[in-house]
Every structure is written in structure tokens, then in C-alpha cells.
């Protein structure tokens, strides 16, 4: 039930966004969202409501965070720390 799905905003009209979710057009209410929304934004949608605005580069950020942990660990291994 926790499954929220990301989608791209196609249009916004008084508190309602039309969102493309994997090719399917769906409405999402915006009254549960803090930030302003405009066309082209990415939203996380849960049971018909938007719960988070997803900055596209955030995904790149996360992968970088994974790699930082991995590289840090490799360095510790080389220094014989672990």
C-alpha cells in the first residue's frame, strides 16, 4: 500500500495536476504537497495525491551517494582499516 509512483506533470489546473505515469495519464491532487508545481516537474503520487516533488537530478545524486560509500570502503580496505 506504500507504493508511490513517479510521474511527469503534463499540465496543472487549480490544485490538480495531469501526470504521465509510465505512459498513462492520471490526475493527482496537489493539496498534500508543500512546493509549487509546474509542467515538466516530476511528482511522487500515492492514492491519487502528490506527496513529493522529485528533482530529476536527485536520482543522479543518490547513485553518487552509493558510490561514495563504496569508494570510502575500498580506501579503508586498502589502508587495512577493515
Amino acid at each position: 500500500m506504500c507504493l508511490a509512483i513517479p510521474g511527469e506533470v503534463l499540465s496543472v489546473e487549480e490544485g490538480l495536476a495531469m501526470v504521465d505515469v509510465g505512459g498513462v495519464e492520471q490526475e493527482a491532487r496537489l493539496d498534500t504537497l508543500t512546493e509549487e508545481v509546474k509542467e515538466g516537474d516530476y511528482l511522487l503520487i500515492h492514492t491519487g495525491f502528490a506527496i513529493q516533488k522529485l528533482p530529476p537530478e536527485e536520482a543522479e545524486e543518490t547513485l553518487k551517494v552509493f558510490d561514495e560509500l563504496i569508494e570510502e570502503n575500498m580506501k579503508l580496505e586498502e589502508e587495512g582499516e577493515i
Binding site: A4, D31, T32, L33, T34, L44, I51, Q52, L54, P55, E58, A59, E61, T62, V65
Partner: peptide, 15 residues
């Protein structure tokens, strides 16, 4: 971090 901020979603919390 791509979907969660430390403070969460204030509007939803207020609702």
C-alpha cells in the same frame, strides 16, 4: 534522499 527530506512534507503533516 531523492524522495525524502529531513523535515518530511510539512503540508501533509499540517493536514
Amino acid at each position: 534522499p531523492r524522495a525524502v527530506n529531513y523535515g518530511g512534507n510539512p503540508r501533509s503533516q499540517k493536514l
